[in-house]
Each structure stands twice: as C-alpha cells, then as structure tokens.
Design a protein around this nucleic acid. Sequence first.
DNA 1: ACATTTATTAACCATTTGGTTAAACTATTT
DNA 2: AAATAGTTTAACCAAATGGTTAATAAATGT
Lengths: 200, 200
Amino acid sequence: MKDQSTEENILKAAISVFQKKGMAGARMQEIADEAKINKAMLHYYYKSKQKLFEAVFRQAFEKFAPHINQVFNSDKSVFEKITEFTDSYISFVMENPYLPNFLIQEINNNPEFADIFFGSEIAPNPLRFKKQIAEEIEMGILRPIDPKQLLLNLFSLTAFSFVGTGLVRGILNLDEKTFKSMMEERKILIPELLINSIKK
Amino acid sequence: MKDQSTEENILKAAISVFQKKGMAGARMQEIADEAKINKAMLHYYYKSKQKLFEAVFRQAFEKFAPHINQVFNSDKSVFEKITEFTDSYISFVMENPYLPNFLIQEINNNPEFADIFFGSEIAPNPLRFKKQIAEEIEMGILRPIDPKQLLLNLFSLTAFSFVGTGLVRGILNLDEKTFKSMMEERKILIPELLINSIKK
DNA sequence: ACATTTATTAACCATTTGGTTAAACTATTT
DNA sequence: AAATAGTTTAACCAAATGGTTAATAAATGT
C-alpha cells in the first residue's frame, strides 16, 4: 500500500464535513478538499456519498452509545450513574460539539435508516436500568418515579445546551466563554437537581 | 387579482418543506408541487430560494418568540411563569413538531443570519427576567440561583424531547402514543421539578 | 527485472437544481 | 371593446453535483 492513511484521512474529513453540514448540505468536493485528495478517491474507498455518510454515522453512533450504555448497564447506583454520566457526557460533547446535533438531525431525517441501529446489538437497551430503578424504589432509596421520565430529564438537561447552542446563546446572550463556564457549572448543578428530585 | 391565495399557498408549502428538510435539503420543485403551482411562481412572488427561506424562518421565529417573551416580559411570578410556559410551550410544539428543530438547525448553520434576528426588536430580551429573579431572591421567595441556568433548565426540559424525538424514542423505545402521554405528564412534572429546586 | 495488483489523478458525464424567459392567459382600467 | 397590468405556464439555461473512466504512477509479488 502506498499510503495507509488515505482511507482514514477521507473518513476524518467526511466526519468533519458531514457533522457540520449534514447529509444534505455536505459536498463530496469539500470532503475531498479537506482530505487533500482527488474526489475520485472518495468513490474508490467508499463507493457512494450514501456509503460514506453511513460510515460517518456509524462512527458517531459508536462513539455516543457507550455513554448511554454506562447508564444502562454498569453496576453503579442510580445516583452515581447520574453524576458520572453528566460529567463524562458534558466533557465528551465539549470535545465533539457537532456530534449530538448530527446524530439527532440525521435520525430525524432518516427514521428507517436509524431503526437499523436501534435494532442492533450496539444499541443501548434500557431494560436493566428500568429494573434497577424499580429495585431502588423497593429499597426505599428512590421515590416512585418513571424511569423513562428520569432518563428524558437527564438527557434533556445535558444535551440540549449543545444541540441548541445557537438558539440558546442567542436568547440568553452568551459569549463563548460564559457558555463554557456554565457547562462546567452544570456538571454539578444537574446531578444535584435530579438527585434531589428522586431521592426519598 | 386572479387568486389572492397563491402567495400564501406558496408560503404554506415552503413552511412545510423547509421545516421538514431544512434549507439544504429543501427543493424548490417540491415546494412548487406541494403548492400545486408552477415552479416559476416561486420566483415571481419570492425572488430566490434564500428569500423564500427567510420568509419561512421569520414566520417560525415570530411564532416561537412570544412563548419566550411571555417568560421574559409578563408580570407573573417566576413560579407562574415556569408553570405556564411549560404548559403552553409543550402544547404549542405538539402542534408544530418541526418548528423547534428547524429554528435550531438553521440558526446553528447560519449564525451571522441568525444574529440579525437576535439583534431585532422581536428578539426576546432576558433583562427584565434577570431583574425579577434578583428581586424574588431578595424577597426570600427563591434561593440564590443563576437566572441563566434556570432558563437553560427550563428550555432543555421542555424542548429537547421534541428536538431529539428520533434519538429519544429510539433509545427509550417509545411508540407515538407513549411519547405523547409522556409529554402530557411533563406539563406537570417539569414545573414541579424546577420549582422545587429553586423555592426557598 | 518484470508482471501484476493497488493507488491516484485529470478529464469527463449525466442528472439535478435554482433560476430565467417569452408567450399565453386573465383580470382590470379606460 | 381595446388597451393595460397582473398572473401563470412550458420550455429552457447555466451551474453545481455525484459519479465514472481511462490513463498513469507506485507498490508488491515472483
């Protein structure tokens, strides 16, 4: 092989462009330019825009899923899970600011395609977590709550700031620096808020 | 005039297509088809795709802003504002499911353009609300909290479920009916959660 | 060293897409 | 009714875009 890294350069460039512009807005030429290769190479390694997109989507999904799975499948207590997820997820997204938006957008635009992922093994499965909640309620640690609503609250509070960055920052008039320091604050604030609302 | 409604048919069709597919994914032909007119009419009434998009964006922004302004500018108490916003916003979005996503997406893709709106008079201004929070803290009604974080929590909890519908429903395995009934529940749940976290 | 496979490029192609034009049709004015 | 202004359409156009091809260059096996 002449250059082992060509294929991964393409994927890297594709990730960058697709995540910023989405499937519809991304241009094959722009990806080629960013990867500093000829456009034909895109089709040599990935045969079509759709296939390249799918590689990008898979990569994003596989990077994202472990955070959810940590909540769904680890042996920690519910309180610990909330605290640890909030911290690790916010840190993660601050390093990958386009990722949640990209996933959300493309899943919304492409429900049938997304269902392939939600049907696969890498897809997070909330069953164990639901059981855990039931147990901790039984044990008198938690109030009687709906695990789905708790998860929705957790995901909303952690993810929305990043997904809706532009709108949020526009409405609240936040500059980059203020936004970032608020996100750091939220690593404490969110677990506090949630744990307080569910602990007996 | 031959048909008074042609122009508004176009706008209606444009709203439908742009909100579902976004600026990049929308096709002028599809808008024309949905409006059941010739494609040239789009350029006759709105001179370009960009102009038509701007009309759609403005309409969406103007439909959305009053909900925020009710929080920012009404004379209600903070508790009342939280309760009323949650209820009215969730109802509103259930009738306009594509709107928040559309706004967020296009603002993120087009920050310079969005800044025009955030600089205009229709843009919500959080100043009065911040003052109100300070007053209610002073009066001993509220704990010392950051108004920005409170607003972020409120917007996150109400909006994220709709913006991230596909992802949320995929991860939590929710069917249409369950999702809707959860949203109804949230009209109660969210104010409870938030008020409890800020009341002294 | 030579043949073969793999990698890369420039040029090209077909389709899609936003946009235009000129003619036809309809309503309004005089 | 004739002229005028406003509305609508079919056909067309140029640029953009995803994709292909044929030739070349580089690596690899024998």
